[in-house]
Structure formats: structure tokens, C-alpha cells
Simulated assay, not measured.
Amino acid sequence: MTADTRRSPFEVYPAIDILGGKCVRLREGDYGQATQYNDDPVAVAHQWLAAGARWIHVVDLDGARDGRSLNEPVIGAIVREATQCGARVQVGGGIRTHQALEAWLAAGVSRCILGTVILDTTFMAEAVRRVGGAHLVAGLDGRDGKLAVRGWLDQTEQSLVDVASALAHLGVQTAIVTDVRRDGTLQGANVAWARDLQRATGMRCIASGGVRGLGDVQAAMQAGLAGIIVGKALYDGRIDLEAALSLAAKGDGVC
């Protein structure tokens, strides 16, 4: 195991999922169940940054589904907005070549989230060599402990624990652990799943999917996770971002 397990602040990541240039949320990863929240994702980013966000989590849903980004201009604008506020951005969705990975980092993205390609250990080893494990995030998205890829449209039989262990050995330091069955459902985050993966691999794990309230944020902190991604609950007004960030600040350095 070579992942970096040093302590770092617990982070709350407000999510911006972009489909066709609009800010949306999917239910259980289903593109047929997309709810549009805002025509201007940059305005949404400005709102989260004004509330004090230190990170913005951006997913290019078009890229995740089609394997190529259609939303570079709007994501680039979000990165510039965040940079001006001293915040950072992590981006995922359709990053399946070294050229795409390096282009996003050159554009000012701090970390790239890789999903479909994480099963290709040769690719991942080369990615770590080229950009360093600290700039990579493994998208460990799945159902019933098995990895889902290509925008969650394809369900594999690969164990998430096995995949995560291999990536940690290669030097990938951070993972987002998403229970696809809970994503967009407000059923509560699967904190235990993320905790177990973190303990098994030594990677810094971020819980995602189904977050419904500050109780999920507290549970993720108590589990020693590196952070939590909040989406639908923010847009529906169930979580106040300033309150979530304040709660996280009290636990800085616990993970």
C-alpha cells in the first residue's frame, strides 16, 4: 500500500453536475431522471464560493456518458472563478486519455477524477508517473460492492475493494466512494462503505451519494473520512453550505 495517509482537513465538496451546459442532478445515475436546477453552472459555483467553499466538485455528465467533454468552456470558467477566490476544483467525467488529464491540470484543475479507466492498471501507473498521485482521484462508484463505469451505465463484476487496493499500490491517494443506488435519492450517505474502503486501502476516501443533511456530514467526520460531496441536498435547501462548512472546520485535521 503506497497511498498517502497523512492527516488532512475534512472537506465539504459542493457538487456541480453539468449536462448540456446546465446544472442538473441525476437520480441513481439515470440520465433519464435528470432534474435541472440552474441554466448557469458558473453562477452556482459563485454561490458556493461566496458561502466559503474551499473546493468545488464538478462532473461533466456529457463526458462521462460519451467519453469526450462537451463542457470545457463552462468548466474553465468555474475554475477561473474558484482560483480568484483561493479555492480549488476537482473535475471528473470522460477523462480517459493522458492528454485529457494533462489538459485539465494545465487549465488549473487541482485534481482529476478517473472512473472508467481505473481498471487499466497500465494507464493508471503511467498517469501517476506523469502527474503524480496527488492530482488523481479514483472514482469508486458502484452497486452492491461492484464497480460501475461509463457514467454508471455499465455495471462490472469487479470488487471495489480489489480495484481500490490496486490503485493505492500504484500511488493514487484519494478516492470518491459513491453508492450509485443512493445517489440523488436523499436516503443518506453510505458512510460505512467509504470507511471500510479507506481502512482497507489507506486511501483518503470521500463519501458521495444520497447525502441528506448535516447528520451525514457529522457521520463522515466521525468515521475519519477525508470529506463528503453534497449535491441534491444543497439544491433542495436541506443543507445550508455555510453550516456544513462550519461543522467541518471544527473537525479540521481529524482525518
Rank of each mutant, 00 (worst) to 15 (best):
K146S: 07
D179P: 03
G209S: 13
R27Q: 06
S246G: 14
R195V: 00
R27Y: 02
G202V: 03
L245Y: 07
A107H: 10
L101F: 06
G231N: 11
V91A: 00
D60V: 07
V128E: 05
V180R: 05
V44N: 11
P14W: 04
A127N: 04
V211F: 09
A125N: 06
V163L: 13
G52P: 14
D216H: 13
L136I: 15
L197V: 03
P73E: 15
L247C: 05
L136H: 10
A138R: 08
E11K: 10
A223P: 13
L119A: 08
D196L: 02
Q155C: 00
Q99G: 06
R6I: 01
W55Y: 12
D236N: 14
A134R: 13
D120Q: 03
D39Y: 04
I229Q: 09
V59C: 11
A64D: 08
R88M: 12
W152Q: 01
A107F: 05
T121D: 06
A175P: 10
D179W: 01
R195H: 09
G76H: 06
G133A: 09
R111L: 02
I18G: 12
I206K: 03
R96F: 01
I78A: 07
L119P: 00
A148K: 01
V217Q: 11
G76V: 05
V230G: 13
V117Y: 01
V191G: 10
I228F: 11
D162S: 12
A248H: 02
V44G: 13
E81L: 04
